[in-house]
Nucleic acid binder design. Structure first.
Lengths: 66, 66
DNA sequence: CATATATGTAAAGCTTGCTTTACTCTCCGC
DNA sequence: GCGGAGAGTAAAGCAAGCTTTACATATATG
């Protein structure tokens, strides 16, 4: 699943470690999501959306989206 | 995490089996989400939001919400 | 060059999400 | 009373998400 996490993070000039800390997860988890190794859990995705103050659908693409 | 899946489903007069089929998951998965045994994965949550044509945040509560 | 910061990646291990099969209970219609 | 539909739940097993530890690479700055 595609996501815009790297862009959002970069636009705030945060390191992966900064974002991980703000979300309460490990840096490797952020890296894995940005490099699309796997999708975040729903709770983590909601935290991300809230942190960046955007609707979740604007950060993570719906499945089967073109 | 709280969710409004049961209400949404009931308002369409669907059984858990109907919804499961529409989403491509097992009936037990729907039941587990409705009874809040566990949260859906992000891809499944996005499918649900799309099926009911509502923003994901209006179906699933953000973590730590009152 | 040496050190620090940012990122990528890997392995092992635990937890969560989902599956299949199967059994239970309730409610409704006949 | 019986049968079927809808719902709740359980166990076993596989897949995905996340952790910690660790090492590698690149880039920047002293």
């Amino acid at each position: 699943m595609k996501n815009r996490l790297r862009n959002l993070r970069a636009s705030r000039q945060w390191s992966q470690a900064d974002l991980a800390k703000a979300l309460g997860v490990s840096r490797q988890t952020i890296n894995a999501i940005e490099t699309e190794k796997y999708d975040p859990s729903l709770p983590l995705a909601l935290k991300i959306a809230r942190l960046f103050e955007r609707p979740l659908e604007t950060i993570f693409d719906s499945p089967d989206d073109p």
